[in-house]
Amino acid sequence: MQVDLLQGTLDMLVLKTLTGGPMHGYAVAGWLQRTTDDALCVEEGSLYPALHRMTRRGWVKADWGVSENNRRAKFYTLTAEGRRQLKEESSSWERLTQAVSKVLHAQPATQGA
């Protein structure tokens, strides 16, 4: 099953992924896919624009390096601003998921009540 992600959600997931240290885009996508047991498959057309957007916002920095298969790749690192953003987005996400969970587990009111 493939899940479409909202822009802010993808940003949060990528920021979380980078808490483990510098990674290139392909590794970010692979980690997300493995960690979610293939539920999230982030396509290049979504991932790289997100990484560029986060770089412009100062949430991540990018440096050229050599990947594990000996290819030149851009490695992304979380910045202090990115850590603050992740904390803020994670908090908002927790509030949202708790609210949705309450609705899903609530007994609907009868009409006219």
Rank of each mutant, 00 (worst) to 15 (best):
L51H: 01
S101C: 14
E89D: 14
N69W: 08
A29D: 03
M23Q: 11
S101V: 08
H24A: 08
Y48V: 10
R72Y: 06
S90Q: 13
D63E: 15
Q98Y: 07
S92M: 12
M1A: 09
R84L: 13
Y48N: 13
V3E: 08
A27V: 10
N70S: 12
E88H: 06
L40R: 03
M23F: 09
R95Y: 09
Q98I: 06
P49T: 00
L96R: 01
A113E: 14
G21Y: 06
K74R: 10
S46N: 12
Q111S: 13
G112I: 07
R84D: 10
P49Y: 00
R57Q: 14
G8M: 06
R72A: 14
Y26F: 10
Q2E: 12
L51C: 03
K74A: 11
F75K: 07
G8S: 12
R95D: 12
V103T: 13
Q85D: 04
L6R: 14
Q107C: 11
A50P: 05
G58C: 00
V42K: 00
K16H: 11
T55N: 02
W93I: 05
S46E: 11
V14C: 06
Y48R: 14
A113F: 11
H24I: 04
L47I: 02
K74V: 03
L32N: 05
G45Q: 01
Y76F: 12
K61V: 15
D4C: 05
D37R: 15
G45H: 01
L18F: 04
R95N: 10
T36E: 06
G65Q: 04
G112P: 03
E43D: 13
T110Q: 13
L32A: 06
C41F: 05
T77K: 02
L13E: 01
Q107M: 13
A80D: 12
T55K: 03
K87M: 09
Q2T: 11
A27F: 03
Q107L: 13
R84Y: 08
A73M: 12
T55I: 00
T79A: 08
R84C: 08
L104H: 06
E89A: 11
R95C: 03
S46V: 04
N70M: 10
G65W: 05
M12F: 07
A106M: 11
T55D: 00
D11N: 12
A106S: 15
W64M: 09
A73D: 11
N70I: 06
Y76D: 02
D38S: 13
V3T: 14
M1S: 13
V3S: 06
F75T: 04
G58W: 00
T79Q: 04
A109V: 11
T17P: 03
T36V: 10
D11F: 04
F75C: 04
V66R: 15
D63Q: 14
S92H: 11
Q2W: 07
T110Y: 08
L51S: 02
Q85H: 06
P49A: 02
